[in-house]
Write a protein that binds this DNA or RNA. Structure first.
Lengths: 215, 215
DNA sequence: TAGATTGTTAATCGATTAACAATC
DNA sequence: TAGATTGTTAATCGATTAACAATC
């Protein structure tokens, strides 16, 4: 029996690099869609993602012939295809921690909503904030964590809290079964191997951009 | 004459991947330093950065023997070394645009300060905000842009504004000579090839993390 | 038809990994 | 000495790129 190694159509796990790049394409495609574009070429995608255009065509053609020669890719259908490939077509619920400036900015933004994430609960330890409303969300107190995670089927925890509060919150999230944590605090989190932590790193990203500007 | 291709000691430009990873190491090292650690092993760095520990030792040993066998790397001296390699030992000044929740969060945070960046000016178009103080910064009006960029030697512009305002702000920044832009808005920016735009992508990062959780 | 852009190949280069001697 | 961890090698795998025929 011959196995087609060149295609991932029937395989299960994508190489890390491919999954990372597909996520980036999705981000740009979503933004382009919002700006009214209906079609995009691999060259335009390359300009916005800083990924080589041949690489983009190669990544996509591994899953099917999504483009139209001489025209480019239809944005809506490409978004659908990539979501299918990444198994992220569904809706995923987020619990957000910290109702300060950053938490409020996240709660009011639709970066997450555009990609199928929904902030279903906002927590804060400040008694003055608990019970108030921020956007469409009521601020919960921490003891309600377990109930909310279960009732709302929360799969992601986003930490927009001071560094001093981050580790204990992560521990509590893990204890109630959350396995994906997005950490905006400056703390380094220690977690079990089966938990995925993603840290925000604007300063590191900026250093990287600056390196090429300075040299 | 024999050129040592294995080392970058005398070369000028690092491969993209190396520069990106060194920036990540710097981020984690800075956080670890803040948490009181003085030494770190390549394995610990690997756990926090999701980069293979052999890869980390390889990256670093290309520039010198920074570690101590049986012990690990001294955090302070490694930070100094990497900053030298990246040519980012100095101080770099940022102009921040948007005094909303996100702008305020950035202005009050020290993620940037920890890496040698200093927010030297904050701009907003809301007349009610111009002239008020946020943290140590006074909110400027946009017409002051050119003067501030020149007087404060601004090299980076950070956009924490609505998508509708982003492109025109980027154009103005480019016109006054800024070549590195960090875009927190959801707009796709069109810029000349010599301008580096870095976009924040929390949702894409989350999709990527989620892919491995779901499969 | 002419222009544009995809899909694909082939060749090169950098990333990844396991393994292990060196040494703190 | 024993344990830990670096620095380095060698082998493999994935990423990158130029080039171009296919085709919209």
């Amino acid at each position: 029996m011959i196995v087609d190694d060149e295609s991932f159509e029937h395989g299960e796990k994508l190489p890390l690099g491919v999954a990372a790049r597909l996520s980036r394409y999705l981000q740009v495609l979503t933004q382009a869609h919002k700006m009214g574009k209906t079609t995009i070429s691999s060259q335009e995608l390359a300009d916005y993602t800083h990924v080589n255009s041949t690489q983009i065509r190669r990544d996509l053609s591994g899953f099917g012939k999504f483009g139209k020669r001489g025209v480019g890719y239809n944005i809506n259908s490409l978004v659908d295809q990539i979501r299918k490939i990444l198994h992220t077509s569904g809706q995923h619920n987020i619990a957000l921690f910290g109702a300060g400036h950053l938490g409020t900015a996240i709660a009011s933004s639709d970066v997450f909503a555009d990609h199928g994430f929904r902030v279903v609960a906002l927590f804060d330890i400040d008694p003055a904030k608990v019970g108030t409303r921020i956007g469409k969300l009521t601020v919960h107190d921490l003891p309600e964590l377990l109930d909310v995670v279960r009732a709302e089927n929360v799969v992601v925890g986003v930490l927009a809290v001071p560094a001093s509060a981050a580790q204990s919150l992560a521990d509590r999230l893990i204890a109630v079964g959350v396995r994906v944590i997005f950490n905006y605090s400056e703390a380094l989190l220690d977690v079990p191997p089966d938990v995925a932590v993603h840290a925000s790193s604007p300063a590191a990203d900026l250093l990287y951009a600056l390196y090429f500007y300075l040299t």
